[in-house]
């Protein structure tokens, strides 16, 4: 899933300073699972905003709405009947959702209520961890199913560096060394011989470096 993090109330209040009527939009997908922008978080943020404005004797009217997805236009269309009643949209979907809402309502200012951080997994209730950077050319079959791009702090394709110590990364004693994980897994899979192969220089055109990416499936198009 895409993992995001709620911005601080202070930052959100600052962005909202000029506005009294706010449409607060959550999303039912990834940000719900990572507890950053689902229906509950919409409720909590709305309540925080109301309390804090009330404390300062200022008005705010908030319409709470959580869409099935903010990355598909048919769901974004659902707020069309009343979007005009609000001065501003505060979205707590991922960065893609926030932008897409803006693309659909071009004269509305759409503010981000979360910081979108990574593609990851739920380690346990309340703990999420990064797994993939969407590099566009997956090498997991060569690295024991552990991503060197996302899980090594230096994205080394031929790690580990000299800073790997007791399974931890030089960057942080609490962070697993991605290359230790790769080697452990290669061993478990009986593929340690793979480690002897040099992984060649990567073609980054499939990644962000090649410019914004787009994917097309002709057979699916209408």
């Amino acid at each position: 899933m895409i993992v995001a993090n709620r911005k601080s109330l202070e930052e959100i209040l600052n962005m909202l300073k000029p506005y009294k009527k706010v449409l607060l939009l959550g999303c039912n997908e990834c940000v719900t699972v990572c507890a950053a922008g689902g229906e509950r978080e919409v409720g909590v943020l709305a309540s925080e905003l109301k309390l804090s404005r009330a404390k300062d004797g200022q008005e705010i009217e908030i319409k709470e709405q959580t869409l099935e997805r903010q990355c598909d236009h048919e769901y974004i269309d659902q707020v069309r009947p009343f979007v005009g009643d609000y001065e501003v949209i505060l979205s707590i979907a991922c960065g893609a959702g926030i932008q897409y809402v803006g693309e659909k309502y071009r004269t509305k200012i759409v503010l981000p209520g979360v910081n979108t951080t990574f593609l990851g997994v739920t380690l346990e209730q309340g703990v999420w961890s990064e797994r993939c950077q969407g590099c566009g050319e997956c090498v997991l079959h060569m690295t024991g199913g552990v991503c060197p791009i996302a899980r090594c702090a230096k994205s080394l394709l031929n790690g580990p560096c000299g800073g790997s110590s007791n399974g931890k990364c030089e960057v942080d004693k609490d962070l697993d060394c991605g290359w230790q994980l790769i080697i452990d897994r290669l061993k478990e899979l009986n593929q340690l011989d793979r480690y002897e192969e040099i992984i060649p220089v990567k073609d980054w055109t499939t990644s962000r470096d090649g410019g914004p990416r787009k994917r097309l499936r002709e057979d699916l198009r209408l």
Binding site: S8, L9, E48, L51, S52, K55, D56
Partner: peptide, 8 residues
């Protein structure tokens, strides 16, 4: 924590 942030 939230109440602190809110100012209550």
């Amino acid at each position: 924590k939230l109440l602190d942030e809110v100012g209550l």
